[in-house]
Amino acid sequence: MDDGLLRRLRAEQARALLDDADPHHAVMLACDLLVAGVDGDAVVALAAESARTLPAHDASRRLAAVTAELGVPEPDLPTAVALVAADTCERFLDGSIPAEVGTHRLYVVGYEGSRLDDLLPAVAALARRLEDDLGGRADDDLRTRLAALARTILNRLGRDPA
């Protein structure tokens, strides 16, 4: 399995550990694994699910079966936080999730043991501005501030924020 697929698998595994896997991402990941020649009963079963109708809990359960089948160990909590935070930042910066989603997903930095917990006040300030001042709809200033925070997080995690 190539590094990109492994990184996606680990990020989704971490998301499932902290909350629930994203059904769309989990199913698409399983499909991409099949295309890359990584197969197995659990991979096929997840790829066969509907990305639109699969409940998040079931996506998490099926993803756990995939990671067990592939021998991918579950990350510890601080690693899971780092994986989800990095994935969220990368997805926001590449435009695949909106600022409204990215802002709330970054609350993950506040989990106990997170090496990013000092950034929780910055995340909370952005979320307050988004919800209280902007009525839940991001403006250009909030997007700019979130992009700066995302680059800071990626730099702290040793990821290229380009």
Rank of each mutant, 00 (worst) to 15 (best):
S96M: 09
A64F: 11
F92C: 07
R62S: 11
H57C: 10
G71Q: 09
A26E: 12
L130K: 02
L126I: 00
G4R: 02
A48H: 07
A11F: 00
A21S: 07
A150F: 01
D132S: 00
P75G: 13
R137E: 04
R128P: 04
L33R: 09
P55Y: 11
A148K: 08
D22L: 04
R115T: 00
A45D: 15
R10F: 01
P23W: 06
T67N: 07
V123P: 02
L130A: 08
Y111M: 06
L33H: 06
M1H: 12
A59K: 05
E131T: 01
A162Y: 12
P55F: 09
L93K: 03
S50K: 15
R61E: 13
A56P: 09
G40A: 15
A26I: 12
Y111V: 06
A162G: 15
I153G: 00
D41G: 08
D87E: 11
P75T: 01
D2M: 06
D118Y: 01
L93C: 12
L63I: 06
R61D: 13
D3H: 11
P55M: 05
L18F: 03
L146Q: 01
L70I: 07
I97K: 05
R129Y: 14
V43N: 06
L130V: 06
E74K: 00
A45V: 14
D76C: 10
S114Y: 04
E112W: 09
A162N: 14
D32L: 05
Q13C: 10
D160G: 11
G95H: 06
G110L: 12
L142N: 04
R151A: 06
P75I: 04
A148M: 00
L154S: 05
L63C: 10
D139N: 07
R52G: 11
V38I: 14
A42L: 05
L83K: 01
D140T: 10
